[in-house]
Simulated assay, not measured.
Amino acid sequence: MPHQQRPTLGIALVVLMSVCFAGMDTTVKYGGLFLPVLLMLWVRYATQALAMTAWLALSSTAGFRAAHPKFQLVRGMLLLGTSAMSFFGVQHMPVAEFTAIVMLTPVIVTMLAAWVLHERVSPLRWALVVGGFAGALIIIRPGSGLFGWAVLFPVAGTLCYASFQVLTSKLSALESPYTTHFYTGAVGAAVLTPFLLASPIDIPAVLHAASGPHLSLMLCVGLLGTFGHLLLILALGFAPTSTLMPFVYVQIVSAAFFGWVAFRHVPDAFAFVGMAVVAVCGAASAWLNVREASSRRPMSPLAADTITD
């Protein structure tokens, strides 16, 4: 039974979701000082798989059966690639700047829609594309030596996630969002397991040497990622997608705040300007993407998922 429309509650849930993902990225960056990043990445997906297994086992409206297993596999792989770029990328860049560049995803989706799907793109949408890239260049400042090769992580993550968005927008209505989130975690954990076992990481030794707080941080990574996506699904039951999507850019503000709390890092004036430009252009692009998609057919919670995890 659909929820009654309650836009304020929906916005509050999306804001909380954005805080969860900013907190996860900051936790990953801090945890990387003590724990193997690959192990944290595995825990993030294994936690989601276990949590969604319990959720589906208790659910009467969704199950484990996938109508399109190939879609689940490809979608899971694309999101895993995005997460890998994020987990390893924040080890080399401040969380706020990294987050702002990744938030170019709706802008990249516009380009892919034009080039790959041959969809018509309005002059306003192209202006937002140019503006978004200008904001990213202000943050990165090529030639400044601020981040160097590390900018390849958010750039690759953004391209991967934009591809994920295009695929999801075409096929998301075919599956339950809860079932798909289960397979997202299961695919990620299954793919990462052999890599983790083949790596030089001595897992028993790492876990034995880790302190209680460090192990708690690793668990928090998985819980924040899983909980964040569930918040999005719940939010979309209370408010239209076009109302909610601009508020995902609270993640940039949250990332800047957590980066200051954890690492005393404050973006410089140029970075703040670039973040503002990316946020405005990205939020406008996301809103236009959602409005046009929903005018063609009802928007699925999966298709509205514009946050990397």
Rank of each mutant, 00 (worst) to 15 (best):
230 L>A: 14
191 V>E: 06
64 F>E: 03
301 P>I: 12
286 A>P: 01
153 F>P: 08
283 A>T: 00
30 Y>A: 15
174 L>M: 06
215 L>Y: 06
268 D>Y: 06
308 T>F: 15
170 K>V: 02
43 V>P: 04
280 V>E: 07
294 S>C: 00
24 M>H: 15
19 V>S: 12
31 G>N: 11
281 C>V: 01
134 A>N: 08
23 G>Y: 03
62 A>M: 06
1 M>E: 14
269 A>G: 06
147 F>L: 10
68 H>Y: 04
275 M>N: 05
41 L>W: 06
276 A>K: 02
84 A>C: 14
48 Q>P: 00
142 P>K: 11
284 A>Q: 01
240 P>Y: 01
67 A>V: 05
218 M>W: 01
249 Y>A: 03
143 G>Y: 11
220 C>M: 08
267 P>S: 12
224 L>R: 13
63 G>H: 06
216 S>M: 15
39 L>Q: 05
297 R>P: 06
249 Y>T: 03
178 Y>C: 02
202 D>F: 08
173 A>D: 10
6 R>T: 09
256 A>K: 04
95 V>P: 07
8 T>N: 05
303 A>D: 03
53 T>Y: 04
50 L>D: 00
163 S>D: 00
191 V>Y: 08
144 S>F: 08
261 V>E: 00
298 P>A: 09
229 H>P: 13
44 R>N: 11
221 V>G: 14
61 T>V: 13
239 A>E: 10
111 M>G: 11
296 R>S: 03
287 W>D: 01
171 L>G: 01
256 A>G: 01
12 A>S: 14
89 G>L: 12
61 T>Y: 08
279 A>M: 10
114 A>V: 01
104 L>Q: 05
38 L>Q: 10
257 F>E: 09
198 A>P: 11
85 M>S: 14
282 G>I: 04
104 L>W: 03
3 H>D: 15
212 G>K: 07
270 F>R: 10
127 A>W: 12
185 G>S: 11
139 I>W: 12
10 G>Q: 01
238 F>I: 03
142 P>C: 10
229 H>Q: 15
186 A>K: 02
88 F>K: 12
7 P>D: 00
283 A>Y: 01
170 K>E: 05
307 I>N: 02
196 L>F: 10
254 S>V: 11
281 C>K: 10
120 R>I: 00
38 L>V: 08
67 A>F: 00
91 Q>H: 14
244 L>R: 02
247 F>N: 02
188 G>P: 06
162 A>E: 05
111 M>C: 15
24 M>I: 15
47 T>H: 09
139 I>H: 12
11 I>T: 00
297 R>C: 09
228 G>R: 15
128 L>G: 02
259 G>H: 05
45 Y>N: 05
87 F>L: 12
96 A>M: 15
119 E>A: 08
86 S>C: 09
81 G>M: 14
229 H>N: 14
26 T>F: 15
143 G>I: 07
28 V>K: 05
102 V>Q: 10
151 V>F: 05
51 A>Q: 00
201 I>E: 06
6 R>Q: 11
189 A>C: 04
136 A>N: 00
14 V>S: 09
41 L>M: 09
98 F>H: 15
139 I>Q: 09
19 V>H: 04
